[in-house]
């Protein structure tokens, strides 16, 4: 059974009200959603809170999932909207890009390559939020450009240019002039 057909089967079961099937969907896609949110918002704890809210909202709306995009894309779309809503509220927006390196860098900033990791995280934090989200999905999460466009509700051309600019910025951090 392919991962896509397993997902489709689990989605159907979840639509019929199976919490077990939905739990398996959460297990299968939690990493993608959390990694996307961590990179996009820069705060691991806030990202995990948002990921939980994302899956709870997804359970409530699973009947509305049409299956045009993959379930992972749909989850990330909800996560993106949750993130945007959270950023608009004042108490969450106080912790943002400035904390990015502090939280992420301190948690995993030891050993070889730690400086490079911090530099890359700083470069990522320096990108505008939608560019950072596109980079997190396409470069960090193996999303195709069209999947990222679908998840984030952005035009395909914008996604492509965000990927190119974001990658150039990260490569510049690694000492490469990326054209």
């Amino acid at each position: 059974m392919t991962p896509e057909s397993l997902d489709a089967e689990l989605v159907e079961a979840a639509r019929r009200g199976s919490p077990v099937a939905f739990g398996r969907l959460v297990e299968r896609h939690q990493r993608a959603v959390r990694a996307f949110l961590r990179r996009a918002c820069g705060d691991a704890a806030e990202a995990d809170d948002l990921a939980q809210e994302t899956f709870i909202a997804a359970w409530e709306r699973i009947a509305r999932f049409r299956g045009e995009a993959g379930i992972r894309t749909w989850f990330c779309g909800i996560a993106w909207r949750k993130l945007m809503t959270a950023r608009r509220s004042w108490f969450r927006s106080r912790k943002r890009d400035a904390d990015y390196v502090e939280t992420e860098g301190l948690e995993r900033g030891e050993g070889a390559g730690a400086d490079e990791r911090i530099a890359l995280e700083q470069a990522l934090a320096g990108l505008p939020i939608d560019q950072r989200a596109v980079v997190a999905l396409c470069l960090g999460g193996d999303f195709s450009h069209s999947e990222a466009a679908e998840a984030l509700g952005l035009p395909l051309g914008t996604v492509k240019s965000h990927v190119a600019r974001g990658k150039a910025r990260l490569m510049q951090t690694l000492g490469v002039d990326h054209e």
Partner: peptide, 13 residues
Amino acid sequence: RLARFWREDGLAD
């Protein structure tokens, strides 16, 4: 190096 950066996200499957 960039690919390694993305892989090391501190999250379990």
